[in-house]
Simulated scan of single mutants.
Amino acid sequence: MPWNRPARDTAPESETVRLPFADRAEAGRVLAARLVPLGLGDPVVLALPRGGVPVGYEVARRLSAPDQPVPLDVLVTRKIGYPRQPELGVGAIAEGGEPVFDHDLMERLGLMEADLAATVAAERAELARRIRAYRGDRPLPPVAGRAVVIVDDGLATGGTARAALRAVRAKGPSRLVLAVPVGAAETIRVLEPEADDLVVLATPWAFRAVGQWYRHFDQLTDDDVLSWLDRAAGGSPR
Rank of each mutant, 00 (worst) to 15 (best):
G97F: 02
E26A: 13
A195D: 13
A164L: 06
L88H: 03
R62S: 13
A122Y: 00
T16P: 03
A156V: 13
I188M: 14
R29K: 12
P20W: 14
Y134H: 13
V53I: 15
E15V: 03
Q85C: 09
L201A: 10
S64A: 14
P181S: 14
A60F: 05
W3V: 06
L127Y: 00
G172K: 09
G97M: 05
I150D: 00
E113G: 02
G234A: 04
A185C: 13
D223W: 03
G159Q: 11
A170I: 11
V148A: 09
R108C: 05
V45R: 08
V90Q: 01
V177K: 06
P49Q: 01
V90W: 05
V199E: 04
H216W: 05
D218A: 15
A161E: 03
Y214E: 04
P2V: 14
A94E: 03
A232V: 05
L105S: 10
R5M: 10
P99R: 00
L72F: 07
G41A: 14
L165S: 07
R24W: 07
P86L: 03
L127P: 00
V177I: 14
A60C: 04
L31M: 11
G81Q: 08
A125E: 14
I131F: 00
A32Q: 11
A94N: 02
A170V: 08
R175I: 01
A233V: 00
E26R: 10
E126A: 13
L46W: 08
W228S: 01
A33Y: 04
A128P: 01
A25P: 01
P141I: 05
Y214W: 05
R129H: 08
R8N: 09
W228E: 15
D218R: 15
A32T: 13
T187C: 11
G183M: 10
L35G: 08
D42S: 09
H103S: 08
A195C: 07
A179D: 03
V45E: 06
V190A: 15
R24C: 14
R62L: 12
E13C: 03
T16Y: 00
L191A: 07
D222A: 04
A156M: 07
T16A: 15
A179G: 11
V30D: 09
L19W: 09
E87T: 02
A163W: 00
V177S: 09
V199P: 04
R61A: 14
T203K: 04
A33D: 15
Y134N: 07
R129P: 00
T16M: 15
E87N: 00
L19V: 09
T157M: 03
L220D: 01
L72H: 04
P193D: 03
R162I: 02
A122S: 14
E126S: 04
M112N: 14
L46F: 10
R5K: 12
E26W: 07
S227L: 01
D23F: 05
G51P: 07
L46P: 11
S236C: 13
P71Q: 11
